[in-house]
Design a binder for these strands. Structure first.
Length: 566
RNA sequence: AACCCGGUGGUGUAAUUGGCAACACAACUGGUUUUGGUCCAGUCAUUCGAGGUUCGAGUCCUCGCCGGGUUGCCA
């Protein structure tokens, strides 16, 4: 055709966020030899959650976009909190999200030797000293937000003495917490981070990688920027709360002879309505049994989200959509759901399942007869093909799809009225059978044999279409319906976030599935027509007791109409 | 209270750097449809406030107001 003939005036204008603008400028100025090199630096002290996904997408995404690379670096400077199992889980999560660090897997602990050398050079230049103040004393000397601090009495120790003491700290000659190595900056700085910050503390604790090789450990501020410089990071992206640390980050770099000059840029972390991302609180939910574990499908952890059936692509799409800025914002959970549906609508095959079954007996349908109907797997993707759906005299339909009496707007089965069974026939409800308690146990219907193939022989219109499953062929399975973990959009409001827990966040039902679902593969996500997207839980599949998790419901226009009416 | 950062619809993010406030989600209308799904069309903010500079201000200046961060040997 006439490609390239016309300029694409409608081409989407490229919207760059502020970090991309900074990178563009750095590139234009010829900084960092034109390289873009980022890193994702998790501390292995817990599982990753949706908030981390944003940081991962930004760091790996930017490297990808600019033809650079992104390192995975574990920020393991505090052995009292870190464990190997987290190192492994974090790698699994990042990989699942679709990112790759090639051979660039690093650990801050891998730089401990080098960091000691750098610290030593700082001491030699009179820019660091060993301090004997206790934690409490140091706090008193630090001053406050409004008052300047006072110099430590050990601040002017001779270089030789500092060197000797620092060596002996490493050799384990002193008690835990009895001494620290501190940078010698400015006790009167309005920025508290610059008031002679601690670089090393004495902690006798086995480290998950270095074992008992060390009894001093670097602080975050001391280790982070230097690790960045060692790796040749050009843009060190972190969250807003480190903004006040940037002057310190720069001070270390300015006072050392490092080959590279990374630049710290801060952005707002991701907050979502109806959930929390505090590691401490997530742990409490697990430990107190409010959820079934770190990978409970209601958890905002990547493990939980993955188990729930949300595709990695949806998370990447979401992170792309929410943008990057410095404003502390909270994104509506509905936006996250939208991304999930956006991906699943294209990729998930359709099936039929009845979650709250009521039996329909088609009295004029021959007993023992079974028809094999063809059903489309994905109306938006012909290549997904079709499958066979058995139809017979008795079928299950959704209890909610029947009313004895109903308003005109109710396009489903009503006593004396007609509805179409999807891919099958039009049926009319003739009789409602109830038990002693008044509960409906069966609907007696008749079908129109001429109504197959979507048409009626006399051309009459039947507006409603409902899903169904042949009773004799149905597979019974547990289906778990999830809702927001927290009923309130802002669980942090008030003094007890647990009070906002949604008591109905998990509901288990016994459902009837069409036979094709028996062969769903573990982890597969399908759409139960008219209901939502459901994931065949890989854990339960392995246990031989399959269950489907509701990943997210379909947009429910009728639900809204009905709610408004009542 | 000191210092740092921020403030654009219900929610987020943009605005050629001083030139008609755009995109997405949500909500609401209507259309298509063998999923009340998808899809399509439409409606929904004069940018925290007050001054100032300018032909022209979301963008620049001044003064306020509001929100977040910081007083770990956590990250």
């Amino acid at each position: 055709m006439n490609d390239a003939a016309e300029p694409r005036a409608d081409e989407a204008p490229e919207r760059k966020h502020f970090i991309e603008k900074i990178i563009d400028e750095d590139l234009a100025q010829g900084r960092n030899e034109g390289r873009v090199h980022t890193r994702f630096p998790p501390e292995p002290n817990g599982f990753l959650h949706i908030g981390h996904a944003k940081a991962i997408c930004i760091n790996f995404g930017l490297a990808e976009k600019y033809g650079g690379s992104c390192n995975l670096r574990f920020d393991d400077t505090n052995p009292t909190k870190e464990e190997t199992r987290f190192v492994e889980a974090i790698q699994e999560d990042v990989r699942w999200l679709g990112f790759d660090w090639d051979d660039r897997l690093y650990y801050a602990s891998g730089y401990f030797e080098r960091l000691v050398e750098l610290a030593t050079s700082l001491i030699e230049r009179g820019k660091a000293f060993v301090c004997d103040l206790s934690g409490e004393e140091m706090r008193a000397y630090r001053g406050s937000l409004t008052e300047p601090g006072r110099d430590s009495p050990f601040r002017d120790r001779p270089v030789e003495e500092n060197l000797d003491l620092f060596r002996r700290m490493q050799a384990g000659e002193f008690e835990d917490g009895s001494r620290t190595l501190r940078a010698r900056i400015d006790m009167s700085s309005p920025n508290l981070n610059l008031r002679d910050p601690v670089m090393y503390r004495i902690i006798r604790q086995e480290h998950h990688r270095t074992g008992d090789r060390w009894c001093i450990y670097p602080t975050y501020d001391w280790a982070h920027g230097q690790s960045d410089a060692i790796e040749g990071i050009t843009h060190s992206l972190c969250s807003l709360e480190f903004e006040n640390h940037r002057p310190l980050y720069d001070w270390y770099l300015d006072n050392l002879d490092l080959p590279a000059r990374p630049r710290q840029i801060e952005f707002a972390r991701l907050e979502l309505t109806h959930t929390i991302t505090s590691k401490r609180k997530l742990r409490q939910l697990v430990e107190e049994g409010h959820v079934e574990g770190w990978d409970d499908p209601r958890m905002p952890t990547l493990g939980g989200i993955r188990r729930r059936g949300v595709p990695a692509e949806a998370i990447r799409h979401f992170c792309e959509e929410i943008g990057v800025a410095k404003y502390n914002s909270t994104i509506d959970w509905a936006k996250f759901d939208f991304s999930t549906r956006e991906v699943l609508n294209r990729t998930a095959e359709r099936r039929m399942a009845v979650l709250d079954p009521v039996k329909v007996v088609i009295t004029n349908y021959p007993e023992g007869q079974v028809e094999e109907l063809e059903a489309i797997n994905n109306p938006g993707d012909e290549s997904a093909g079709t499958r066979i759906l058995p139809f017979s005299r008795e079928v299950w339909i959704e209890r909610d799809d029947f009313r004895e009496e109903a308003p005109r707007k109710f396009f489903r089965l009503v006593t004396g009225r007609e509805v179409r069974l999807r891919y099958a026939y039009v049926i009319r409800c003739d009789e409602v059978i109830k038990d002693a308690a008044g509960e409906i146990v069966e609907l007696r219907c008749t079908y129109d044999p001429e109504s197959g193939g979507g048409k009626t022989s006399d051309g009459r219109k039947v507006k409603g279409i409902i899903h169904w499953v042949s009773a004799g062929h149905a597979v019974t399975s547990e289906v778990i319906l999830y809702d927001h973990l927290f009923a309130s959009p802002d669980p942090e409001e008030g003094d007890d976030y647990l009070a906002h827990l949604n008591p109905d966040s998990r509901q288990v039902v016994s459902a009837r599935l069409e036979p094709a679902l028996a062969s769903a593969s573990p982890g597969e996500v399908v759409q139960f027509e008219r209901l939502g997207y459901f994931c065949n839980d890989p854990v339960r599949a392995a246990d031989g007791a399959p269950a489907f998790h509701r990943t997210v419901g379909l947009r429910d226009t009728w639900g809204k109409i009905e709610k408004k009416g009542s």
